[in-house]
Amino acid sequence: MQIIVENIAKDYGKKRNAVHAIKDVSLEVSAGEFVGIMGPSGAGKTSLLDLISSNERPDHGRILIDGIDLTKQHDRTLAKYRRNKMGFIYQSFELLDSLNVKENIILPLVLNHASKNLIEQRFQHLNQLLNISELADRSIDDLSLGQRQLIAAARALINSPEIEPTGSLDSNSATILLNYMQLINQKENTTIMMATHDAFTASYCSRVVFIKDGAIFSEIVNSGQREDFFEQVINMQRTIGGGSYFNVPENN
C-alpha cells in the first residue's frame, strides 16, 4: 500500500494553549517500504502515526492511502479500515487488562465476526512465529514490558495488515519481532512505519525520517550496509538530540 501525506498539520488545545504537534508535513511511502520515524520526545512521531492510522484527523492537508483520501472518509469507514488494513503497535501498547493475552491478540478478528476456526488458525500461525503459546492464558498485568510489546505486535499482525504503523519498539526483546517484521515486509510486501528512539531498531528500516518540532528535519536511506546505516542514524540522532543507541543486543 502506498501512503502519501500532503501538507498535514495538527494542533492540540485551543488558542493560547494550542500545541502545534505537526506542522505542514509531507511524506511519501511506497508500497512495501519499511520506514522508521525518529526524533526527540515530543517531536511529533506518535502524532504523525496517529494521523496516518486515522486515529486523529488532521487540521489541514490530505492523507492518501492507495489514492483514497482518509480525511474525507466517515468515522465508521475509518474504524473498519484501522481494524482490517492496519496493525498498530502503540507506544504504550494499549492492551486491555480485562482480557487475557490470547483474547487481546484475537480481538480484531472477533470484532470482524471471523469464524472460530479462522481465529484459531491465525493465532496458531502467530504462535509459531513469535512463540507466544506459554503466555496465551496469562493476564496482561503479569507480563514484562518486552512481552507486552510482543503481544501488542501479535494483535497488530493477526489481521495480516497491509500497513503496520509501529509506535514503539525500543526493547531488546524486540529482536524476534523485528526479524518477523522484516520478513513480512519482504515476503508479503507489507508497508511498515515505525516510530522509535532506538538506533539499532531503526537499522532494520529501509529509510528513516527524522522529525523535530512537528516538522520533517531530515531523512536517511539504507543503502544496504546495516552497520553504515546504523552509524548514520546515530550521527543524525546526535544532531537533533534525543534517542538511544545502547540497546544493541549482544548477539547483534
Binding site: N55, D75, R76, A79, K80, Y81, R82, R83, N84, M86, F88, Y90, E94, L95, L96, L107, P108, L111, R155
Partner: peptide, 10 residues
C-alpha cells in the same frame, strides 16, 4: 479509548 484505537466502530 483502546477499543477505539484498535478499530472498534462507533
Amino acid at each position: 479509548k483502546t477499543l477505539k484505537k484498535i478499530g472498534m466502530t462507533e
